[in-house]
Every structure is written in C-alpha cells, then in structure tokens.
Computed example of a mutant assay.
Amino acid sequence: MCNTDPSASRSGTDELATVDHLRALLGRYPFTGRIDHDEEELQDVRRTRALLRQVWSLGRDDAAEAVNKMLRDAKALPHLVRHDSQDWHVHATEPSSPLAERIRVDAALGLLDVIQMNEMDRLRICAADDCAGLVLDLSRNGLKRFCSVRCGNRMNMIAFRERRADRE
C-alpha cells in the first residue's frame, strides 16, 4: 500500500487517487471486516499511507513511539481469530473498525517485531535513483536494495551500460 504513493509507484502517479483505485488495491490485498468504499475512507487510507511511509524513515526510538501511538489510538487489543478459510491469526481491532485504522494496527503489529529485534536497518528506501519505494528486507543476508525486480533490473542495466561505455 505504501508504494502506491506517486514517488514510489510503478506508474509515477498516485495509485490511490480514487475510490476505484482503493477497491482495486483491496482486490489484490484483501482485508476482512468493514469497508465503506467512500471518499472519507480513501482519504483516511491515504493519511495512513503517509504515516507509514514516515515511520519507515524514523530511528528506532521514534518508530517505537509512532507504533505505540497507532496502537494506543486504536485501543488495540491483540487476539487470535480464525475466519473464512484462514487459520488462526492475530487481529487487534474489531471487524467494524474503519479500514485505515485496521491497516495502521496491522502494520504496527508487524513493526513491533522489527523494533524489538533491533532490525530497523531492514526498513529501507529503494536504492534506484528515481524511486522512493519502501523496502522491507526479509532476506537472510539483509542485502535487498530495491523495492521491486523492475527497479533492480533497471539499475543493473544502467550499470551494465556504464561499464560497457567505459570499456569503449
């Protein structure tokens, strides 16, 4: 969701500009519970996107403060649930909570482990020259640099052309 921002999207445009864009995103990354499909919800999700993009660039202590605020504001109470075809997993809000709040809380729960394990260096901005995509590096060696294969291939091609030009 965070890489739908114009600075990070593949298209270079805001991929959350309309309610239909949000509907398409939820088609790819489904959320259960309340979904209003209205302009107010879209704006709240866009504010959440901005907040999460900001957390990515914070130091560990500031990120912990931001995560705690997200959880506190939502009055989050983690609990195990099993529904639809999904086995036991954690929810921390009610299904009737606003979509953006559920997104914030889910992200905060994931960030808890990153902060607790002192792995903030696994949260990065894409190393491609013209991309501000967010990278969550879950690789074993922690060396992932690009937000997508597309960015990696593009930068590798640029480097290849530069090496070839230097030899000529």
Rank of each mutant, 00 (worst) to 15 (best):
E40K: 10
L52S: 02
L134N: 05
L112H: 06
R154Q: 11
I158V: 15
R102T: 06
H37E: 11
A50G: 06
L80K: 02
P95L: 07
A128Q: 15
R164H: 08
V149C: 04
D36V: 09
L80A: 04
Q43M: 13
N3C: 09
E40R: 14
R122D: 00
R145I: 10
D87F: 00
P95R: 08
L112F: 04
P30A: 14
L77A: 01
A159G: 02
D14C: 09
R154I: 10
K69Y: 13
L123P: 10
R154H: 13
C147P: 14
R104E: 08
L52F: 02
D137I: 05
Q54S: 09
A24T: 07
T13L: 06
E40V: 13
H91V: 06
E94R: 05
R140H: 13
D130Q: 03
D130V: 01
M1S: 13
H89K: 05
H21V: 04
K144T: 15
A8Y: 07
R140D: 12
P95I: 04
L134H: 08
E94V: 03
R167M: 04
D137C: 13
C2H: 04
L109I: 11
V135K: 08
L58Q: 10
L134R: 10
M157H: 14
E65L: 08
C147G: 15
M70E: 13
L136D: 03
R72D: 05
I125K: 04
R47E: 13
D84Y: 10
M157P: 06
S96K: 08
H37G: 06
R60G: 00
I35A: 04
Q116A: 11
V81C: 04
R28A: 15
T13I: 01
V149A: 15
R23T: 14
V90W: 08
F31L: 06
T4K: 05
R161H: 15
R122L: 02
A92M: 05
L16C: 14
S139V: 12
Q54D: 12
L58S: 07
F160L: 14
